[in-house]
Design a protein around this nucleic acid. Sequence first.
DNA 1: CGTCGGGTTGATAACTTTCAAATTTCGTGG
DNA 2: CCACGAAATTTGAAAGTTATCAACCCGACG
Lengths: 242, 242
Amino acid sequence: MSLDSPFARKLSTFVTLSGNDLTVLSDLHRRRRRFLSGRDMMSQGEANQAAYILASGWVCYYVLLRNGAKQIVEIQVPGDFLGLRSVLFRTSDQSITTITEVEASEVLARDLLDAFSSTPRLATAVLWAASRDQAMMAEHLVGMGRRDAAQRLAHFILELAARLILVGQGSKSRFACPLTQYQLADVLGISAVHVNRVLRELRVAGMMTFRDGHVTFEDFDRLVVYADFDIAYLDHGGPLLR
Amino acid sequence: MSLDSPFARKLSTFVTLSGNDLTVLSDLHRRRRRFLSGRDMMSQGEANQAAYILASGWVCYYVLLRNGAKQIVEIQVPGDFLGLRSVLFRTSDQSITTITEVEASEVLARDLLDAFSSTPRLATAVLWAASRDQAMMAEHLVGMGRRDAAQRLAHFILELAARLILVGQGSKSRFACPLTQYQLADVLGISAVHVNRVLRELRVAGMMTFRDGHVTFEDFDRLVVYADFDIAYLDHGGPLLR
DNA sequence: CGTCGGGTTGATAACTTTCAAATTTCGTGG
DNA sequence: CCACGAAATTTGAAAGTTATCAACCCGACG
């Protein structure tokens, strides 16, 4: 396996993967699965022992409240590892649904643990990825609590850009973003109507445009300042290999 | 070591700990440290290889934004494990500060990994605890996005109660809570003034009272309904031991 | 005493939601 | 290629929630 896989590409940015690592990694991609857009891959409360490596397409973790409100907890893009917690717990504590059509490799708990024991470096890498996910969640929490809608939106879009650039699916000028404004609203914890207004603000301000399934940055650097975006939480200098 | 340690007590609620497990666990408590109230135990961006097991007192993870706003990401109470991520990454991505005077056992990365290899069951237990922390963070995220201030406050207080009951430091009628209204505000992402008003609402409604460093539940069950609180995310039936 | 860190309350401003309606986009079948 | 309906986007107006500003109270403490 080469770096064609977004997952391998992501891991290799912070851990040097040997030929053997790549082979083991390749084995994990054996059970290829396809999902249509808008389908649940995993449901809250359901026993599910499989995890996935996302090869193409986007998915999200979400929670439905009793009052009907929905909150998207995390967006996952190609190269991300899904459902690590559902391997650890008896049941998944969140639902995962596809945002686009998706290709993913199903990873059985047993295979994952075997892979870990045969290449500890891979285990470290996956653990690193999981910790990075947690760091992103913490950053979202901060945004929800202390940033207004516009800053929050800008920050989220910049984070997406950074993640996609890492897996070779975006640049500082443009990336494909299949999210609807409703989904954006559920990520940011605001109403879809307000998302629309905020997008207009940012567009009028000449910083970014969200249209036709694409985000275009008219002024990336100014947006970074506006959103107070600091890449550090996504880009530590690699984990300690201990 | 018996179940005197809140940490052991917490772990034992979902994994049966053998005599050997308890011995290893006891060894981790060797380096006892004390911190005064209001001191940073760890700082954002600082290289810090130690983690802590919290024996007594409360601490919080927090982030300071450039605009001066502060967001508390997580509150940790006795029995919680601190700074697991700072062991994994070169630097800590958040600051940890003490809310009260604190007693904690410093755990060096090396000792922790040695303990893990000698008793895999302990490793599973700590991993479970970390995943539970992540689940709590996800739940907070949902609250920030989709619950109003009053529900959010009620939900947070109920979560605290559940966690403290687990380590023997609270009941369904009352627990000691050293937080100020300012700190509560920084946890919930609202202003301190509004915290005060919301507390009054809940008090007038006859559900709970926050006063003199104690939370008193006048009507625990009604508060649970009001907050739409579901204990499930804190209390899975134990992890799969694989 | 006098100060200082909480806590409490009122009045006003800011931000965001909700409701309603018009417009555009897009996939599908005729 | 066009028509049609569903989904998504866009905008205005009114209502609701929360922040901010400003006072005042209170108890701990030097």
